[in-house]
Design a protein around this nucleic acid. Structure first.
Lengths: 160, 160
DNA sequence: CGCGATTGAGTTGTGCACAATCGAATCGTG
DNA sequence: CACGATTCGATTGTGCACAACTCAATCGCG
């Protein structure tokens, strides 16, 4: 059987090139499709993700959004400012904990959900894949992300 | 059977959330792992991709790199300048066509290939997946990217 | 209660992705 | 040969990702 140990470095480098590159290419392709689909909503794809979690939860602290999307304040702070400037969300300091900032959709932001309703179906159609394939792919990617996030940094730099 | 047409919008939105988000999360997880693995080489992940194609082809015009990695000059120009500043590549105008810029690894850049040899194996090990699973995943992602790149932009904005 | 440690946002700086645009070189057709 | 169209790269501007840091608010232990 073909395993990690029976493949020469040279082939490996090629294979590796393709898996990481494939992921990159697929992500960028998705971004391109979303960019088109979200153009009429005036949202970028990461902004759309933020609105998705806000539509689902009603309101969340910045930290809560960051946990669900795995983004830190360095990414979210400016993004949320742009969403606020666009009139889709409002931010205010939590009365209970002055360190925390609560974000919630404005009326306009909530109304946007209706306009966004058709987006996911069109995206799924664009993939040309049956639902079960999409689901299977998603599960593999999730499992992969979990494994990669759990990797010990030192185990990487210190070669085997 | 469950198809695109038998699932309500509401569920769909959730499913969609997960597939696009999973891809995003997996890409970012990969980036994190590569960041660690490439730290000792002084390369970012996109810079590593560029070095990979240069190691394979010896020298290429900027356009050739862009075709292989699907990146445009707006991304490559500054990236190549940084690689040049790091001493890994040199750029010069092609004598045959003064519009074109030829990029090739310096001696130091070529030497880097040996130091990079162990990287892909460690990345593959970090995924915790057998080779055939990686290959299968790669093929699915490639097929997906092809489909998504071929999507007619008008078909997205004009709803079904 | 008081003070050091921790937590939550925000800021700064670097790098990538991409759209739009520019200028120079080259091509192609009349 | 001349001139409009195209090609190539660089540049500009916007937005995202992330590391490193700051600062205020809060927590918790003595």
């Amino acid at each position: 059987m073909e395993t990690l140990d029976t493949v020469p470095d040279e082939d490996f480098l090629r294979l590796d090139h393709q898996i990481c590159f494939s992921l990159h290419a697929a992500t960028r392709a998705f971004n391109g499709v979303y960019r088109e689909a979200l153009k009429e909503l005036g949202l970028t794809y990461p902004q759309y993700l933020v609105m998705l979690v806000l539509w689902e939860h009603g309101e969340l602290p910045v930290k809560g959004i960051g946990e669900r999307l795995r983004l830190d304040s360095g990414t979210l702070s400016p993004l949320l400012k742009r969403l606020e400037a666009a009139g889709y969300v409002e931010r205010r300091r939590s009365p209970e904990d002055e360190r925390s900032v609560t974000v919630r959709p404005t009326g306009e932001g909530t109304a946007l959900k209706e306009k966004a309703r058709g987006v996911p179906r069109r995206i799924a159609a664009a993939t040309g894949l049956p639902l079960e394939d999409i689901r299977d792919l998603r599960e593999r990617l999730d499992a992969l992300a979990v494994r990669l996030d759990a990797v010990d940094p030192d185990a990487l730099s210190s070669c085997v």
